[in-house]
Amino acid sequence: MNSALSKALRGNRHGIRNYLRRYWTLYLLLLLPMAYFFVFKYIPMAYCQIAFKKFSLVKSVWEMPWAANNGMEYFIKAFANRDFIYALKNTVMLNLLDLIAGFPAPIVLALVLNELRFKALKRLTQTVAYMPHFLSWVIIGGLALQLLADNTGLVNNALAGAGIKRVPFLSESAHWVATYVSLGIWQSIGWNTILYLAAITGINPELYEAAAIDGAGRLRRIWHVTLPGIRSTIVVLFILALGNILQSNFDRPYVLTNALVIGVSNVIATFVYTAGIRGLQFSMTTAVGLFQSVICVGFLFAADRLAKRFGERGVV
């Protein structure tokens, strides 16, 4: 705010007074939002110094003494903590699997929707497929528990009825991971088609006509016209997802986890919650959060450069 004003004041005196008389209300409007960002976003950044300090309940953040080992004590502790190492590995593993299985899914669905000739059915499918996006993970977790339970779940009962062995969807690590990824796809596949479908509508229809005249069938039209037409959307979204590889969702693993699979389901976000807010190890978990944020920013900028190398508009 101040810097904006001082910048403004550098100009011609008379012009500035005129400018402010006309536009001071714009700064008035910005006052509350800026106060919001200052209090709820920037002060917590200042609080990040707790990562380098010995936490104390009675002292203010500025007064807390520096931690041992040049303030790095809690980073060392974090990396010596087995649960954190597992959480780090799990975060990367689950995100990579989400990327491999979850990323192509909406592209395929968008291509299918685009090929659908019945517009009413297309609209209906879209509406229905957006629905899971509007459900909370608590609800989805509840549904999954209900439907996929080992002995009472509808799916396993159907499998047993058909003479197939029951599947431990949520109670065995490898199956849990598969279930986690599948539920993610279920929740987001419809919603994530939106950007691809928007990109498809931007493709010049003459290209399809030309392809048809050249005798291209459906698959060749998809391959040679539609996919190249949404290439830049795909590249940008893929690189953005790569940049978020260390980002961790809280609700989804937290709701779906259980004691049997904690070895693969504990991610950074759930680790920070359990060790920090519940376990009161504030300095160590702040260090973990800071580590995660810094790496995320690094990845994002790397992703941005990658996008530009592919000749795309950046993502930052």
Partner: peptide, 21 residues
């Protein structure tokens, strides 16, 4: 203003500093 705002989208302090605040 834009930079100040967008920056908070890329770098977040994490849940514990927010909790302590």
């Amino acid at each position: 203003f834009n930079v100040l705002i967008i920056f908070t989208m890329y770098f977040n302090a994490g849940i514990i500093p927010t909790y302590l605040l």
